[in-house]
Design a protein around this nucleic acid. Structure first.
Ligand SMILES: [Mn+2]
Ligand SMILES: [Mn+2]
Ligand SMILES: [Zn+2]
Ligand SMILES: [Zn+2]
Lengths: 148, 148
DNA sequence: ATAATAATGAAAATCATTATCAACTATCAT
DNA sequence: ATGATAGTTGATAATGATTTTCATTATTAT
């Protein structure tokens, strides 16, 4: 679970504040380790903090994405979805996207091999394209168990 | 360059027709090997076929994506972008996305290693999650040469 | 405390994408 | 050929996620 200190530092360092609405939204994301849309975050936040508006949710999600506290995904269902950035190496994962029912599966298998593959690739790419890599996303598209 | 026969078959097989608007849109995609948005496709198509409407462009892009003739991407700029599916193995590539200026770089380095990595991963995932993989996308996010 | 700056909620605006609908067209069985 | 059937289209309206605006409030620095 992400604790306040970490986020506080990450925000303050760039001149932002860790306000009560932002806290509440972070709590919701921490307690719902799924792939929440902005509206879902709003509804969940609304239960304990009815005063927080949808615009603030959008603003906060953008801000947290900017500073790297959360990560933004597009799984093709017409809305962005968000997830707390993995703190520990073990939590790092990627996604299987069912092209029929939309189900999203997290997987973190083969991370040893991936780490090696990505590391080599990053070295090659940053040399060849002078591109400084921050992060990556891998998506597999196909049919889930129920949809085949 | 993609020739008509291939697309014709791919469409007819599922009961769709290769009409003149669809031809025109395919031509635009073939002659502009970039990552075009729907509106860009519309504007380019409009030059030679002023009668084709934006709705038809959207419909066609969705259809071509469905049957696998083109591929849909989200690079985070708020609109979907499209690209003809690689015919030959050599054209298979992934993307570097600059998080500052939005530039997209195609890369196809390390494809040997990728092929091996993906193949192992697919075997593992389809065994563990009963997931049948059709395709994959890899994104690297960071800063391009000009933006560092 | 005071001033400067950041953040907020409510509402309106934006903008990409989709749905509607009537007219048109290819395909296929008769 | 003929007509029935199903696919396609352009124009337009509608949708829906996200952003912007703006007046107000909260936080920080001096
Ligand atoms: Mn996930
Ligand atoms: Mn590309
Ligand atoms: Zn499924
Ligand atoms: Zn750049």
């Amino acid at each position: 679970m992400r604790e306040a200190g970490w986020c506080y530092g990450k925000l303050r360092r760039k001149g932002f504040r860790l306000t009560s609405p932002r806290q509440a939204i972070l709590d919701v994301l921490a307690q719902n380790p799924r792939h929440l849309s902005a509206e879902e975050v709003f509804l969940l936040t609304h239960k304990s903090h009815p005063g927080i508006g949808l615009a603030t949710v959008y603003r906060t999600l953008n801000l947290l994405t900017q500073v790297g506290i959360i990560r933004k995904f597009d799984f093709g269902d017409g809305r962005s979805r968000y997830e707390l950035t993995a703190e520990e190496e073990e939590e790092h994962h990627h996604h299987l996207v069912c092209i029929r029912c939309g189900r999203i599966i997290n997987y973190s298998d083969f991370m040893e091999k991936e780490k090696k593959f990505i590391k080599d690739l990053e070295a090659e790419l940053s040399k060849k394209y002078q591109f400084k890599i921050n992060s990556h996303q891998i998506y597999f598209y196909g049919l889930c168990k129920e949809c085949q």
